[in-house]
Amino acid sequence: MKNTTRTRIAAGAIAGAMSLGAVSQVTALTANAVAGLKSGTFTGRREYAYYGYVRVQAVVQSGKVVDVKILEYPSDNGRSRYINSIALPYLIQETVDAQSYRVDLISGATFTSSAFVKSVTDALRQAGA
């Protein structure tokens, strides 16, 4: 098992925010509820999540997040009910460290995709101009 610190983050990006336009307006909850990973129960700030408010509670034991409860999430209108028919997603966070694993194949960026990123950059520069 890898020795990393993990923090669960309740993503503000509710599963209804399918278009980029929506995502850009989403406010993600930050990891402040479990900063330093002290043991205890932490209630996160009430955060606006595009279609309503989200508030979560995290339970930390021995430096690990053992539970995240959703205290509040958007449910006041038809739009939100649609969104909540899909589970509220969590994002999991960790600190990366280099390893030497024995693997069959490797996934990673190449110069090819790097070049493509440059072309995307150029396209975006034009789009934003």
Partner: peptide, 13 residues
């Protein structure tokens, strides 16, 4: 088994 290449050191996973 698929390794994820480290963006910090391409020789590492």
């Amino acid at each position: 088994a698929i390794g994820l290449r480290s963006p910090f050191d391409p020789s590492k996973l």
